[in-house]
Design a protein around this nucleic acid. Structure first.
Lengths: 136, 136
DNA sequence: TTAGAAATTGACGTTTACGTAAACGTTAAC
DNA sequence: GTTAACGTTTACGTAAACGTCAATTTCTAA
C-alpha cells in the first residue's frame, strides 16, 4: 500500500529490502530528507521515489556520489545559460556511460547464452546413452 | 600491437588504463596468471582477455568475486550431470541479473532523455529574446 | 502501568578494492 | 660503472558503504 501515505522506516525496509541502517545512512549523506515527527522519521512518496532511484543506481554500479549527481540532474532547473550548457554536458556524460554499460551487458549476455547452449548440448549428450565418444 | 605477443605490465597499464598495482592485485586474487621469466611477469593474450573481462565486469558494477564466478562459467567444462545442472542454474542467475541491469539502464536513459529535452527547450526559450514570460 | 516492540543515536568495526611509499633487484644507455 | 628506467615485494593506509553493537527513547498492547 505505498499509495500516497507516509511510511515508517520499517515499511521501507520491508518494501525495498534494505536495512534501516542503510536508509539512515542515505539520509546522513543528504540523499533522503524524511519528515520528522518528534524523533521518528516519516517517509513521504518522494522519499520512496528517491530511494528507488538510489537502489537502481546501485544495481548499475554507480557510486552514491554519482547517483547523487544523477538525481540532481532530475530535479534541477538552472536559470542561466552557462548553467544549462553545463547541465547538458553532464547529461551527455551520464548517457555515454549508460550506453557503454548497455554494450557491456549485450556482450556478456551473448557470451553467457553461448555457454548456456554448450552446457545444454553436454546435457543432451549425457542423456543419450549409446553415444559414448562418438567424435573421437 | 596486441597481436599475439607477450607483454610487460607497462603495456597493460597503457592499453587498459589501469595501474600496475591493480594488475598485480588481480593476480594476487587469482584472476590473472602471467608467466614468469625470472622475476618479471609476462602477459599472454589470454591474460589480456581476462583483464578485459574483469574490467567489463567492473563497469557493470560486479564485485571481483562475482566477476570471478562469471569468468569461471566461461571456462568450465564440468563432467558430471549434477555439476552441469548447477552450472546452468548459475548461468540463469547471472542472466537474470544482467536483464535487470538492462531494464534499469533503459529506464534511466529514458529519464535522462526527458531531462535533456527539457533542458534544450529552456535553452531555446532563452535564445528567443522577444518571448519573456509568454505563458505567465 | 508495565512489558515488549519499534525507532533512534552514537560509536566503533568490517569488507572491498585498490593507493602509496619504501626498499630492493635488473637491464639498458651513456 | 654508474645512473636512469622499469619491475618487484612488503606493508601499511584509505575511501566507500554499510554492519554491528549498546544505550536510550517512544510507542503500544495487554
Amino acid at each position: 500500500m505505498p499509495g500516497n501515505k507516509v511510511h515508517t522506516i520499517a515499511d521501507l525496509v520491508r518494501d525495498f529490502g534494505v536495512t534501516a541502517r542503510t536508509i539512515r545512512f542515505y539520509e546522513a549523506e543528504g540523499m533522503l530528507t524524511p519528515e520528522r515527527q518528534g524523533q521518528q522519521r516519516l517517509y513521504h512518496p518522494r522519499d520512496r521515489v528517491r530511494l528507488k532511484l538510489i537502489l537502481r543506481g546501485k544495481r548499475l554500479g554507480f557510486t552514491l556520489a554519482e547517483i547523487r549527481e544523477i538525481i540532481d540532474l532530475y530535479h534541477a532547473a538552472p536559470g542561466e545559460l552557462g548553467q544549462l550548457q553545463y547541465f547538458l554536458d553532464k547529461i551527455q556524460e551520464r548517457r555515454a556511460d549508460l550506453e557503454q554499460k548497455r554494450k557491456d551487458i549485450e556482450l556478456t549476455l551473448k557470451e553467457l547464452e553461448e555457454v548456456d547452449r554448450t552446457c545444454r548440448q553436454h546435457l543432451l549428450e549425457l542423456a543419450r546413452p549409446g553415444s559414448k565418444e562418438a567424435a573421437e
